[in-house]
Design a protein around this nucleic acid. Structure first.
Lengths: 166, 166
DNA sequence: CTTGGAAAGTCAACAAGGCTGACATAAAAT
DNA sequence: ATTTTATGTCAGCCTTGTTGACTTTCCAAG
């Protein structure tokens, strides 16, 4: 009760424009670090960030349909198709006709696709792990809380779907 | 000492691949939310994300030189120049010859530039503020800690320069 | 004072990865 | 039988990144 200018015992200084600006810039610079290692690897293989995203989510949810992947990635089918086509041609992704609904195509990583996925996610996890370790478990919990609150409501269901496995 | 499988009294479960993967996906979806509002505004004005980044840092550090901005943004001068040229032509950015070193050009926002900057950062801060408020001050502290640990060492000095009020 | 290098700008060409619009096919649903 | 859905494709456009080559201006060191 010695504090002044507080509400519910918590100061609101973390909501100042200055604090928000710092968070915005941290987000900008951190995202660059976040993508830097995969970008290097992708470059060696002649792929780009768009290929990584497709590979990531196909690995995460093997057998998802093109429409689902489209919704998760939030791009047009023409844009995704360009990427998906090269991955299929190169033998990293497989395209199986749906059993129940034969219009659907279910996407799977081939062993080669899984190998690239491991290479990419390994590098990305390494940086993440190092940041987590440096910050500690409590900071990590806060990190996730804020990020999840930033996700667009329309996208949150996709995030949850992936997060909760399956 | 009643705990098992712990080190220094802290569990290491937050470093599992599964936890890291969730962090990676949260980062992916959150960054999309992070850029969504400014992107809509930029689109109305006929600009792109590259213009936003330039405007942001010029506003943050008025009078910075082209070389500095180049280093902060991490793009080539040809790429930046294309963006900068349109901003100058449109009267949002001003380009002053350096007093000490006349080779340098110092960048400033015009009143019109400042108006757009406020519109953009206002929208971005609103989302950030809402996420901060939902997560609380302790989570915000953790959020910043993890993000800062993710920043590439080469980039950290630029982040610090901006952060500490350049 | 000359010369080398730094700061800025420009031209051309290219690539990745977004977008729209139009259209085709197969299969499911009505 | 008809309509709708899922997928795929073609063509063309835009933004924003890249390389490489070259110029002008100006500072600084010899």
């Amino acid at each position: 009760m010695a504090e002044t200018g507080t509400q519910g015992g918590e100061t609101l200084l973390f909501l100042t424009d200055e604090q928000l600006r710092k968070g915005i810039e941290a987000m900008f610079f951190a995202y660059r670090g976040f993508t830097a290692d995969p970008d290097r690897i992708l470059d060696q293989h002649g792929y780009g960030r768009a290929h990584h995203r497709a590979i990531h989510f196909i690995n995460r949810q093997p057998g998802l349909t093109v429409t689902t992947l489209l919704a998760v990635l939030g791009v047009t089918k023409q844009s995704l198709n360009r990427v998906l086509r090269t991955l299929i041609e190169d033998g990293l992704v497989e395209n199986r006709v749906g059993r129940r609904d034969k219009r659907e195509r279910h996407l799977y990583l081939t062993p080669a696709g899984e190998a690239l996925e491991r290479e990419l996610s390994g590098a990305q996890r390494e940086r993440m792990r190092s940041a987590y370790r440096a910050a500690g478990p409590q900071a990590v919990a806060g990190f996730r809380q804020v990020l999840e609150a930033m996700i667009d409501p329309d996208m949150r269901r996709h995030y949850q779907m992936m997060k909760d496995g399956g």
